[in-house]
Design a protein around this nucleic acid. Structure first.
Lengths: 320, 320
DNA sequence: GTGAAAGCGCTAACAG
DNA sequence: CTGTTAGCGCTTTCAC
């Protein structure tokens, strides 16, 4: 495996010159550039991450924390991130070259990784309680508000929810329910709820809510309870795909009347192929890209905005 | 950040003694052990992976390749693996400390990682065509047969399928269909098909098959086509959750008669909460554990078996 | 512009 | 049993 020294010899220059060339900082004459390039090609030289790591005290890895990787939103996010990072790395961006996905008991695992200096930064896509002050690496969150020092990436939850509600309203729906799991931490996701309340108040409609910190897996019971209590709804806005599907299923089992359902995310389409849900679709790729760009800047000590908002879109399906 | 030298000084010994102590190889006197232990505790010393990496030319990372991380089986597998590796590492097993999940275009990404010596080994949980000879790191596959050099972990596909068929048969089902996506590469998953054929032949029943290399996302069309052509089935065995759900849905939409459905994996229960599918459940945790243990052995140059079979189980739900 | 040299933290001979 | 020593591959002063 060729090292920088082999390249230097082959090119007839010192190894610091090669280093300068490879890292792109410092001057290298045109002549030497060419010889180095050739040597690199000939020897198939690839800079050693461990050498760099040791010297620079960086791991070139980042972590992404999610509550569970089996959740379609989180797994799609992780996949996007991975792909984007790979794309950058392939293009020669040397700031980071691997991403470690951390699920379940994230706080402990993340701490473990940081203690061992195994990561240079992390994403938090999670609602677990986090004492972020303990962490010594740059952090970026998705949806989660943790204070000035931690930039946050969100989609335009408020606007997107409003759009969906307007759609239902324009269709003539006047008895619109809202169902979902309420985040226990300060989260941008709460803006969906704000939008619902504001909209209904503006239109002078009565709210029909089922919004608490439910455990995942129990959506069906929650939805059943909701529909059993709230007779005569003509539409329901769900804050997740799981709640939307549960509501759909509960309505079916209870023989509920015609009911428009709008889901959030629309990530489960490839699994639940029928019916096609009408959904508010977050731009997961865009969010991942934005988040990565923020984190890379933070890692390199550059300044970066406190927050980035990525637009969501509305996708009409068969359920509304 | 304390280094091995700080520990050595604090303990009043040479750094190689500390190294020996930490790595567990070589003799260290009881007396020195104690002093080193104390120094480590006092200084909160954590061995540097980059130092080790550079010295030993190892990355302490492994990759797991899956076609897509959004597939519940794959994501659960990845999560299991991650957790198991973390558990081992936390217990002091220093053979590996991070896992990189590789999805989409796995072959190229894996190659990229290996070229940069970013991983010490990899799992292949994928049916993409792979020229494994190109790879210079130990490999372990799940379900996939690649030759003597590459150990494989599977569940007892044949037996588990047989058990499910027997269950249907004993319930009086005689017109049993089989639907699924057929792997294009040599795979242990084909044993499910073998079991189906063998069982039906043994019982003198006619087979009803829909088994090709379908694209994911099209399960519903395939299932509809199947049920439309095959009238009068009283049971269907699906080789995945997605096919099972699609069959269930297609039967509903077509107004098909009573139909028992058995799914494979049972990974989607937390999303599709109703109906509860009767499933053949692979022991994903067990498979991940087995695979990890094989890979660790290979990485350390120890001998290991060519294959490990992990039992699957049968879980009765509402659909059969 | 460039090269020599120091050193990041670690392990493995090797000599005591 | 233990300490000294020589790198692993890289970046970065600092002279030239």
């Amino acid at each position: 495996m060729a090292s920088i020294i082999d390249v230097a010899k082959a090119a007839g220059v010192g190894k610091s010159t090669v280093s300068r060339y490879v890292s792109g900082k410092g001057y290298v004459s045109e002549e030497n550039r060419a010889r180095i390039e050739e040597a690199i090609r000939k020897l198939r030289y690839v800079p050693s991450t461990s050498g760099r790591s040791l010297r620079l005290q960086r791991s070139y890895a980042m972590a992404i924390c999610v509550p569970m990787i089996t959740h379609p939103f989180f797994s799609r996010f992780a996949e996007s991130l991975q792909s984007e990072l790979f794309r950058l790395a392939e293009e020669g961006d040397g700031r980071l070259n691997k991403v470690i996905i951390v699920a379940q008991d994230e706080q402990r695992k993340l701490k473990w990784l940081i203690e061992r200096r195994l990561i240079d930064g992390a994403f938090l896509v999670t609602h677990e309680k986090f004492d972020f002050k303990e962490f010594g690496v740059p952090l970026v969150t998705v949806d989660r508000l943790m204070g000035r020092e931690v930039p946050v990436v969100t989609s335009d939850n408020y606007e997107a929810t409003l759009r969906a509600l307007r759609y239902l309203y324009d269709k003539g729906r006047r008895s619109i329910g809202f169902i979902g799991g309420r985040p226990s931490q300060r989260s941008e996701v709460l803006r969906r709820y704000d939008a619902y309340c504001d909209f209904l108040e503006e239109k002078g409609l009565a709210p029909h809510l089922r919004y608490q910190d439910y455990r995942h897996g129990e959506e069906i019971e929650v939805a059943e309870g909701f529909l059993r209590e709230e007779k005569g709804l003509d539409a329901v806005l769900a804050t997740s795909d799981a709640f939307a599907f549960a509501t759909y299923r509960a309505a079916f089992e209870l023989g509920y009347g015609a009911l428009d359902i709008i889901s959030y995310d629309g990530c489960m389409d490839e699994w639940i192929q029928r019916p096609r849900f009408t959904s508010i679709v977050q731009d997961i790729d865009g969010m991942a890209r934005a988040a990565l760009s923020l984190l890379l800047k933070k890692i390199c000590g550059e300044s970066c905005p406190d927050s980035v908002v990525v637009p969501a879109s509305f996708r009409k399906g068969e359920t509304a």
